[in-house]
């Protein structure tokens, strides 16, 4: 009787009723993933997972995901989780793909199983839980990676150094300034000053939502560093509210010139440089 129990365990059931399991599995998974991916894609995923699971299951009922025979399944699950994370699936949507197997298996048990098989279902269920947890773990890692990449991209995108004139460069800042970003901003600006041989830099903070003491400190440091290189900085784009906060906080900009708008700053830089901007009068030559 004991032999029969092993023989009738979930592993055997799984192996024998392959097509039915896959069909029920896909069905169950499709209910919660509806619209996110096509049925064909889902079935392909499910079929791959099923094959890997069956290939990894040896004799007996007790298995854990850490078994060496599940290496292929682990790799597959990690792959699927990665893809889902990148495609913007939620964590539930990712894990449900695996948990749906439980439901499928229950259905198969009802039709083909006996009491012994039901008993072994607890072991099966534990294994599936492990698979789900593993998927979630990989999913979280993948999401972290995505977030990290986006933060890097944002850092890159948000610090363009623009040449306005010969010897005048501008750095339009957009978004909140924290220490890490200011460091990048500072390095980029100084490098640009050296590379282009510019003596004037305009730091435009129109896109900075708020200026607190820390941000001001960062700005002052950048200006000081630029001075050490032999360049002058003008801070422009100070909105009225920011001017009020700055004064309320008691921040001293000292002898650093500040302008309300970028155009005024450019004009000031041009004047310092010795360039005059004059409007042409009289008839225009065509």
């Amino acid at each position: 009787m004991a032999d029969a129990a092993v023989d009738k365990g979930w592993a055997t059931l799984l192996r024998r009723n392959g097509d039915e399991v896959v069909a029920r599995w896909s069905e169950a998974a499709a209910q919660s993933l509806e619209g996110r991916m096509t049925r064909a894609e889902l079935e392909r995923d499910v079929r791959e997972m099923y094959d890997a699971l069956v290939a990894g299951v040896g004799e007996g009922d007790r298995h854990t995901l850490a078994d060496a025979s599940f290496a292929e399944l682990r790799a597959l699950l990690a792959d699927v989780s990665h893809t889902r994370a990148r495609q913007g699936f939620s964590s539930t949507e990712t894990a449900v793909g695996v948990f749906a197997l439980k439901e499928a298996m229950l259905g198969v048990l009802e039709e083909h199983g006996d009491l012994a098989a039901y008993r072994s279902f607890a072991d099966f269920s534990r294994l599936i839980d492990e698979l789900g947890l593993y998927m979630l773990e990989v999913y979280a890692q993948a999401r972290e990676a995505v977030i990290g990449e986006q933060a890097d991209a944002l850092l890159e995108l948000s610090t363009p150094v623009v040449k306005l004139w010969d010897g005048i460069i501008s750095l339009p800042l957009v978004g909140t300034l924290d220490s890490a970003r200011t460091q990048v901003v500072m390095e980029k600006l100084l490098q640009a000053l050296v590379d282009t041989g510019s003596e004037h830099a305009i730091i435009d903070i129109t896109g900075v939502p708020a200026v607190d003491t820390q941000v001001a400190q960062h700005l002052l440091k950048t200006v000081q560093a630029a001075r050490l290189l032999g360049a002058e900085c003008i801070i422009s784009g100070i909105r009225p509210q920011i001017a009020q906060t700055v004064v309320a906080l008691g921040i001293e900009f000292g002898d650093i010139s500040t302008k309300a708008s970028l155009s005024e700053a450019l004009l000031a830089a041009l004047r310092k440089q010795g360039t005059d901007v004059v409007r042409r009068t009289g008839r225009r030559d065509r």
Binding site: Q191, V194, G197, E199, K221, A225, R227, L228, G230
Partner: peptide, 30 residues
């Protein structure tokens, strides 16, 4: 003082040294 590297400038500022009384320029020409 001319030709200071950006990294050096950042370090000096972080150290709180502003080289008081020293004028600076980007290169020898300037």
């Amino acid at each position: 003082v001319v030709g200071m590297r950006p990294a050096v400038a950042i370090t000096l500022v972080e150290l709180g040294l502003s080289l008081g009384g020293v004028r600076t320029a980007l290169d020898v020409d300037r």
